[in-house]
Design a protein around this nucleic acid. Sequence first.
DNA 1: TAGACGTGGGT
DNA 2: TACCCAAGTCT
Length: 369
Amino acid sequence: MKKAQVKQLENIDIDKFQQDLISWFEAEQRELPWRKDKDPYKIWVSEIMLQQTRVDTVIPYFQGFIEQFPTIEALSNAEEERVLKAWEGLGYYSRVRNLQSAVKEVYENYDGKVPADPQEISSLKGVGPYTAGAILSIAYGIPEPAVDGNVMRVLSRILSIWDDIAKASSRKVFEAAVRALISHDNPSYFNQALMELGALICTPTSPSCLLCPVQEHCDAFREGTQNELPVKTRKKKHRHVQIVAAVLQNAEGKFLIHKRPDKGLLANLWEFPNTEVIQAFINEKDQLNEMVKDAYEAEIQIGEMIGQIEHVFSHLTWNINAYQGQVRSIAKESAEVKLVTAEEMKAYTFSVSHQKIFQQFIQHIEKEG
DNA sequence: TAGACGTGGGT
DNA sequence: TACCCAAGTCT
Protein backbone atom coordinates (compact mmCIF):
# COMPACT_ATOMS: atom_id res chain seq x y z
CA MET A 1 0.00 0.00 0.00
CA LYS A 2 2.92 2.31 0.55
CA LYS A 3 3.87 1.99 -3.13
CA ALA A 4 0.35 3.01 -4.15
CA GLN A 5 0.45 6.00 -1.85
CA VAL A 6 3.74 7.24 -3.30
CA LYS A 7 2.34 6.71 -6.76
CA GLN A 8 -0.71 8.91 -6.06
CA LEU A 9 1.47 11.60 -4.56
CA GLU A 10 3.37 11.73 -7.83
CA ASN A 11 0.11 12.28 -9.70
CA ILE A 12 -0.73 15.41 -7.75
CA ASP A 13 0.08 18.95 -8.85
CA ILE A 14 1.06 20.03 -5.35
CA ASP A 15 1.06 23.79 -6.00
CA LYS A 16 -2.38 23.70 -7.55
CA PHE A 17 -3.69 21.42 -4.82
CA GLN A 18 -2.49 23.79 -2.08
CA GLN A 19 -3.91 26.76 -3.91
CA ASP A 20 -7.33 25.16 -4.51
CA LEU A 21 -7.55 23.95 -0.93
CA ILE A 22 -6.47 27.19 0.75
CA SER A 23 -8.59 29.41 -1.52
CA TRP A 24 -11.62 27.34 -0.63
CA PHE A 25 -10.81 27.65 3.08
CA GLU A 26 -10.41 31.41 2.83
CA ALA A 27 -13.86 31.66 1.25
CA GLU A 28 -15.79 29.04 3.17
CA GLN A 29 -14.30 28.62 6.64
CA ARG A 30 -16.68 28.80 9.58
CA GLU A 31 -16.38 31.63 12.06
CA LEU A 32 -15.27 29.94 15.24
CA PRO A 33 -14.38 31.58 18.57
CA TRP A 34 -10.85 30.13 18.57
CA ARG A 35 -10.20 31.53 15.11
CA LYS A 36 -10.36 35.15 16.31
CA ASP A 37 -6.69 35.37 17.19
CA LYS A 38 -3.54 33.26 17.24
CA ASP A 39 -2.95 33.16 20.98
CA PRO A 40 -1.20 29.79 21.36
CA TYR A 41 -2.91 29.24 24.71
CA LYS A 42 -6.40 29.66 23.23
CA ILE A 43 -5.52 27.47 20.25
CA TRP A 44 -4.24 24.89 22.72
CA VAL A 45 -7.43 24.95 24.82
CA SER A 46 -9.58 24.64 21.71
CA GLU A 47 -7.58 21.70 20.36
CA ILE A 48 -7.88 19.79 23.63
CA MET A 49 -11.63 20.44 23.79
CA LEU A 50 -12.09 19.41 20.17
CA GLN A 51 -10.56 15.98 20.70
CA GLN A 52 -13.32 13.46 19.89
CA THR A 53 -15.86 16.23 20.42
CA ARG A 54 -18.14 18.12 18.03
CA VAL A 55 -17.56 21.77 17.22
CA ASP A 56 -21.12 22.72 18.26
CA THR A 57 -20.62 21.09 21.64
CA VAL A 58 -17.27 22.78 22.21
CA ILE A 59 -18.21 26.40 21.40
CA PRO A 60 -20.03 27.29 24.67
CA TYR A 61 -17.48 25.41 26.77
CA PHE A 62 -14.61 27.21 25.06
CA GLN A 63 -16.15 30.60 25.68
CA GLY A 64 -16.87 29.87 29.33
CA PHE A 65 -13.45 28.37 29.91
CA ILE A 66 -11.55 31.26 28.35
CA GLU A 67 -13.68 33.73 30.28
CA GLN A 68 -12.76 32.05 33.55
CA PHE A 69 -9.17 31.22 32.65
CA PRO A 70 -8.11 33.77 30.02
CA THR A 71 -4.37 33.19 30.28
CA ILE A 72 -1.77 30.59 31.09
CA GLU A 73 -1.22 32.32 34.39
CA ALA A 74 -4.92 32.22 35.27
CA LEU A 75 -5.28 28.52 34.54
CA SER A 76 -1.99 27.79 36.20
CA ASN A 77 -3.14 29.34 39.47
CA ALA A 78 -6.73 28.02 39.43
CA GLU A 79 -8.15 25.45 41.85
CA GLU A 80 -8.59 22.07 40.18
CA GLU A 81 -12.17 21.89 41.44
CA ARG A 82 -13.05 25.07 39.51
CA VAL A 83 -11.27 23.83 36.41
CA LEU A 84 -13.13 20.53 36.47
CA LYS A 85 -16.40 22.41 36.97
CA ALA A 86 -15.75 24.40 33.79
CA TRP A 87 -15.33 21.06 31.97
CA GLU A 88 -18.39 19.39 33.53
CA GLY A 89 -20.36 17.52 30.87
CA LEU A 90 -17.66 17.71 28.20
CA GLY A 91 -16.30 14.23 28.92
CA TYR A 92 -12.81 12.72 28.83
CA TYR A 93 -12.01 14.59 32.02
CA SER A 94 -8.33 13.61 32.11
CA ARG A 95 -7.95 16.02 29.19
CA VAL A 96 -8.47 19.04 31.42
CA ARG A 97 -6.39 17.73 34.30
CA ASN A 98 -3.54 17.07 31.87
CA LEU A 99 -4.09 20.51 30.33
CA GLN A 100 -3.77 22.29 33.64
CA SER A 101 -0.74 20.22 34.55
CA ALA A 102 0.91 21.08 31.22
CA VAL A 103 -0.01 24.74 31.53
CA LYS A 104 1.67 24.83 34.94
CA GLU A 105 4.73 23.28 33.33
CA VAL A 106 4.76 26.02 30.69
CA TYR A 107 4.22 28.73 33.31
CA GLU A 108 7.06 27.49 35.46
CA ASN A 109 9.61 26.13 32.99
CA TYR A 110 8.97 27.97 29.73
CA ASP A 111 8.49 31.50 31.05
CA GLY A 112 4.76 31.20 30.42
CA LYS A 113 5.24 30.84 26.64
CA VAL A 114 3.93 27.78 24.82
CA PRO A 115 7.06 26.21 23.30
CA ALA A 116 7.32 26.42 19.50
CA ASP A 117 9.64 23.43 19.35
CA PRO A 118 8.12 20.09 18.25
CA GLN A 119 9.96 18.06 20.84
CA GLU A 120 9.31 20.43 23.71
CA ILE A 121 5.63 20.87 22.98
CA SER A 122 5.17 17.12 22.51
CA SER A 123 6.59 16.49 25.96
CA LEU A 124 3.67 18.32 27.57
CA LYS A 125 0.96 16.19 29.19
CA GLY A 126 -2.00 15.57 26.89
CA VAL A 127 -0.21 16.96 23.83
CA GLY A 128 0.06 14.11 21.35
CA PRO A 129 1.17 14.21 17.72
CA TYR A 130 -2.06 15.77 16.46
CA THR A 131 -2.28 18.54 19.05
CA ALA A 132 1.42 19.35 18.77
CA GLY A 133 1.11 19.77 15.00
CA ALA A 134 -2.10 21.77 15.30
CA ILE A 135 -0.65 24.29 17.76
CA LEU A 136 2.67 24.59 15.92
CA SER A 137 1.04 25.17 12.55
CA ILE A 138 -1.95 27.29 13.58
CA ALA A 139 -0.38 29.45 16.27
CA TYR A 140 3.21 29.60 15.00
CA GLY A 141 3.00 28.91 11.25
CA ILE A 142 5.37 25.96 11.49
CA PRO A 143 4.84 23.36 8.72
CA GLU A 144 4.15 20.32 10.91
CA PRO A 145 1.44 17.75 10.09
CA ALA A 146 -1.72 17.73 12.24
CA VAL A 147 -3.30 14.42 11.41
CA ASP A 148 -6.73 13.82 12.89
CA GLY A 149 -9.65 11.71 11.75
CA ASN A 150 -10.67 14.27 9.13
CA VAL A 151 -7.23 14.41 7.60
CA MET A 152 -6.99 10.63 7.40
CA ARG A 153 -10.40 10.42 5.76
CA VAL A 154 -9.70 13.20 3.25
CA LEU A 155 -6.23 11.99 2.30
CA SER A 156 -7.23 8.34 2.16
CA ARG A 157 -9.64 9.39 -0.60
CA ILE A 158 -7.46 11.88 -2.42
CA LEU A 159 -4.41 9.62 -2.44
CA SER A 160 -6.21 6.26 -2.41
CA ILE A 161 -4.61 5.09 0.82
CA TRP A 162 -6.11 1.79 1.89
CA ASP A 163 -4.36 1.43 5.26
CA ASP A 164 -6.76 0.78 8.16
CA ILE A 165 -7.12 4.14 9.89
CA ALA A 166 -8.26 2.40 13.09
CA LYS A 167 -4.69 1.17 13.54
CA ALA A 168 -2.31 3.49 15.35
CA SER A 169 0.48 2.61 12.95
CA SER A 170 -1.41 4.17 10.02
CA ARG A 171 -1.03 7.71 11.31
CA LYS A 172 2.58 7.95 10.19
CA VAL A 173 1.60 7.11 6.62
CA PHE A 174 -0.67 10.16 6.62
CA GLU A 175 1.90 12.32 8.35
CA ALA A 176 4.36 11.49 5.59
CA ALA A 177 1.74 12.45 3.01
CA VAL A 178 1.09 15.78 4.74
CA ARG A 179 4.81 16.53 4.89
CA ALA A 180 4.92 16.06 1.12
CA LEU A 181 1.83 18.18 0.47
CA ILE A 182 1.81 20.92 3.11
CA SER A 183 2.11 24.57 2.09
CA HIS A 184 5.18 26.18 3.62
CA ASP A 185 3.71 29.60 2.88
CA ASN A 186 0.62 28.93 4.94
CA PRO A 187 0.79 25.71 6.94
CA SER A 188 -1.89 27.02 9.30
CA TYR A 189 -4.54 27.35 6.61
CA PHE A 190 -3.39 24.19 4.89
CA ASN A 191 -3.90 22.04 7.98
CA GLN A 192 -7.13 23.76 8.96
CA ALA A 193 -8.44 23.50 5.40
CA LEU A 194 -7.86 19.75 5.34
CA MET A 195 -9.87 19.39 8.55
CA GLU A 196 -12.55 21.85 7.46
CA LEU A 197 -12.92 19.98 4.18
CA GLY A 198 -13.41 16.76 6.12
CA ALA A 199 -16.02 18.40 8.35
CA LEU A 200 -18.01 20.17 5.61
CA ILE A 201 -17.48 18.37 2.29
CA CYS A 202 -15.52 15.14 2.55
CA THR A 203 -17.83 13.68 5.21
CA PRO A 204 -17.81 10.06 6.40
CA THR A 205 -21.08 9.21 4.65
CA SER A 206 -22.36 10.77 1.44
CA PRO A 207 -19.49 13.18 0.78
CA SER A 208 -20.36 16.21 -1.36
CA CYS A 209 -17.87 15.45 -4.12
CA LEU A 210 -19.63 17.70 -6.61
CA LEU A 211 -18.93 20.70 -4.37
CA CYS A 212 -15.37 19.67 -3.57
CA PRO A 213 -12.66 22.25 -4.31
CA VAL A 214 -10.04 19.53 -4.81
CA GLN A 215 -12.20 17.12 -6.76
CA GLU A 216 -9.81 17.20 -9.71
CA HIS A 217 -6.99 16.00 -7.43
CA CYS A 218 -8.97 13.16 -5.87
CA ASP A 219 -8.18 9.59 -6.83
CA ALA A 220 -11.23 8.18 -5.05
CA PHE A 221 -13.52 10.50 -7.03
CA ARG A 222 -11.82 9.40 -10.27
CA GLU A 223 -12.19 5.75 -9.33
CA GLY A 224 -15.62 6.09 -7.69
CA THR A 225 -14.30 4.62 -4.44
CA GLN A 226 -15.17 7.51 -2.12
CA ASN A 227 -17.75 5.40 -0.30
CA GLU A 228 -15.23 2.61 0.35
CA LEU A 229 -12.61 4.90 1.86
CA PRO A 230 -11.28 5.25 4.43
CA VAL A 231 -10.82 1.64 5.53
CA LYS A 232 -11.70 1.48 9.21
CA THR A 233 -12.14 -1.75 11.18
CA ARG A 234 -14.93 -1.71 13.73
CA LYS A 235 -14.51 -1.93 17.43
CA LYS A 236 -15.69 -4.78 19.62
CA LYS A 237 -18.94 -4.19 21.42
CA HIS A 238 -18.52 -3.03 24.97
CA ARG A 239 -19.58 -4.57 28.29
CA HIS A 240 -22.50 -3.76 30.57
CA VAL A 241 -22.15 -3.19 34.31
CA GLN A 242 -24.98 -3.26 36.85
CA ILE A 243 -24.74 -0.42 39.38
CA VAL A 244 -26.75 0.31 42.51
CA ALA A 245 -26.71 3.94 43.69
CA ALA A 246 -28.50 6.04 46.30
CA VAL A 247 -29.25 9.67 46.94
CA LEU A 248 -28.93 9.79 50.74
CA GLN A 249 -29.85 12.66 53.07
CA ASN A 250 -29.24 13.22 56.76
CA ALA A 251 -31.78 14.67 59.18
CA GLU A 252 -30.89 18.20 58.06
CA GLY A 253 -31.53 17.32 54.43
CA LYS A 254 -27.88 17.37 53.41
CA PHE A 255 -26.71 14.99 50.71
CA LEU A 256 -23.94 12.42 51.04
CA ILE A 257 -21.44 12.72 48.19
CA HIS A 258 -18.12 11.08 47.48
CA LYS A 259 -15.05 12.03 45.44
CA ARG A 260 -13.84 9.41 42.99
CA PRO A 261 -10.18 8.30 42.90
CA ASP A 262 -7.65 10.39 41.01
CA LYS A 263 -7.13 7.74 38.34
CA GLY A 264 -9.37 5.90 35.92
CA LEU A 265 -12.99 6.50 34.94
CA LEU A 266 -14.34 9.96 35.87
CA ALA A 267 -11.25 10.62 37.98
CA ASN A 268 -11.67 13.23 40.74
CA LEU A 269 -15.33 13.82 39.94
CA TRP A 270 -18.00 13.62 42.66
CA GLU A 271 -20.71 10.98 42.83
CA PHE A 272 -23.54 9.57 44.90
CA PRO A 273 -22.73 6.42 46.87
CA ASN A 274 -22.80 3.49 44.49
CA THR A 275 -21.32 0.10 43.88
CA GLU A 276 -21.20 -2.54 41.19
CA VAL A 277 -23.74 -5.31 41.73
CA ILE A 278 -22.06 -8.69 42.05
CA GLN A 279 -24.50 -11.34 40.91
CA ALA A 280 -23.66 -14.13 43.31
CA PHE A 281 -24.31 -11.93 46.32
CA ILE A 282 -27.33 -10.90 48.39
CA ASN A 283 -29.74 -8.21 47.14
CA GLU A 284 -28.42 -4.95 45.77
CA LYS A 285 -29.60 -2.76 48.64
CA ASP A 286 -27.63 -4.88 51.09
CA GLN A 287 -24.57 -4.66 48.87
CA LEU A 288 -24.77 -0.88 48.82
CA ASN A 289 -25.28 -0.86 52.58
CA GLU A 290 -22.14 -2.92 53.10
CA MET A 291 -20.10 -0.69 50.82
CA VAL A 292 -21.22 2.48 52.57
CA LYS A 293 -20.54 0.97 56.00
CA ASP A 294 -17.02 -0.11 55.00
CA ALA A 295 -15.99 2.91 52.94
CA TYR A 296 -17.60 5.80 54.82
CA GLU A 297 -18.26 4.25 58.26
CA ALA A 298 -21.84 5.38 57.87
CA GLU A 299 -25.17 3.87 58.89
CA ILE A 300 -27.81 4.34 56.25
CA GLN A 301 -31.36 3.34 55.49
CA ILE A 302 -32.13 2.74 51.84
CA GLY A 303 -35.73 3.42 50.84
CA GLU A 304 -37.68 3.40 47.59
CA MET A 305 -36.29 3.04 44.12
CA ILE A 306 -36.38 6.40 42.37
CA GLY A 307 -35.48 5.26 38.89
CA GLN A 308 -33.57 3.02 36.53
CA ILE A 309 -30.95 4.69 34.38
CA GLU A 310 -28.94 3.49 31.42
CA HIS A 311 -25.78 5.48 30.87
CA VAL A 312 -23.64 4.69 27.85
CA PHE A 313 -19.91 5.43 27.88
CA SER A 314 -17.68 4.89 24.87
CA HIS A 315 -16.35 1.61 26.27
CA LEU A 316 -19.05 0.39 28.67
CA THR A 317 -22.65 0.85 29.80
CA TRP A 318 -23.86 1.41 33.33
CA ASN A 319 -27.32 0.11 34.16
CA ILE A 320 -28.06 1.98 37.35
CA ASN A 321 -30.78 1.18 39.86
CA ALA A 322 -31.15 4.36 41.90
CA TYR A 323 -32.71 4.62 45.37
CA GLN A 324 -33.35 7.32 47.91
CA GLY A 325 -32.62 6.96 51.59
CA GLN A 326 -31.36 8.41 54.86
CA VAL A 327 -28.02 8.82 56.54
CA ARG A 328 -28.46 7.84 60.20
CA SER A 329 -24.90 8.52 61.22
CA ILE A 330 -21.53 9.03 59.67
CA ALA A 331 -18.21 8.69 61.46
CA LYS A 332 -15.87 9.80 58.75
CA GLU A 333 -16.50 12.97 56.84
CA SER A 334 -13.34 13.90 54.97
CA ALA A 335 -11.96 15.58 51.90
CA GLU A 336 -13.52 12.76 49.87
CA VAL A 337 -16.74 12.14 51.77
CA LYS A 338 -19.04 15.08 52.47
CA LEU A 339 -22.52 16.06 53.54
CA VAL A 340 -23.61 19.11 51.54
CA THR A 341 -26.76 21.13 50.90
CA ALA A 342 -28.33 21.18 47.44
CA GLU A 343 -26.97 24.69 47.00
CA GLU A 344 -23.44 23.71 48.02
CA MET A 345 -23.58 20.73 45.69
CA LYS A 346 -23.61 23.05 42.67
CA ALA A 347 -19.93 23.83 43.22
CA TYR A 348 -18.96 20.17 42.86
CA THR A 349 -18.38 18.45 39.54
CA PHE A 350 -20.50 15.44 38.68
CA SER A 351 -20.46 13.24 35.62
CA VAL A 352 -23.58 13.22 33.48
CA SER A 353 -24.41 9.75 34.82
CA HIS A 354 -24.64 11.09 38.37
CA GLN A 355 -26.51 14.19 37.25
CA LYS A 356 -29.10 11.79 35.85
CA ILE A 357 -29.36 10.08 39.23
CA PHE A 358 -30.03 13.41 40.93
CA GLN A 359 -32.61 14.34 38.30
CA GLN A 360 -34.44 11.09 39.06
CA PHE A 361 -34.38 12.03 42.72
CA ILE A 362 -35.84 15.47 42.03
CA GLN A 363 -38.56 14.05 39.79
CA HIS A 364 -39.42 11.46 42.39
CA ILE A 365 -39.73 14.10 45.12
CA GLU A 366 -41.94 16.29 42.92
CA LYS A 367 -44.18 13.38 42.07
CA GLU A 368 -44.61 12.51 45.75
CA GLY A 369 -45.58 16.11 46.38
C1' DT B 1 -1.12 -2.62 20.21
C1' DA B 2 -5.52 -2.59 21.84
C1' DG B 3 -8.31 -0.95 25.37
C1' DA B 4 -9.51 2.84 28.59
C1' DC B 5 -11.35 7.15 28.55
C1' DG B 6 -17.39 10.73 28.06
C1' DT B 7 -20.93 12.63 25.85
C1' DG B 8 -24.55 13.76 22.57
C1' DG B 9 -26.17 13.34 17.95
C1' DG B 10 -27.28 10.73 13.74
C1' DT B 11 -29.08 6.61 11.28
C1' DT C 1 -31.97 -1.11 19.86
C1' DA C 2 -27.48 -0.85 18.64
C1' DC C 3 -24.33 0.80 16.28
C1' DC C 4 -21.19 4.75 14.45
C1' DC C 5 -19.37 9.12 14.66
C1' DA C 6 -16.52 13.89 16.46
C1' DA C 7 -10.23 18.43 15.58
C1' DG C 8 -6.91 11.94 20.26
C1' DT C 9 -3.93 10.60 24.16
C1' DC C 10 -2.27 7.52 27.54
C1' DT C 11 -0.90 3.09 29.14
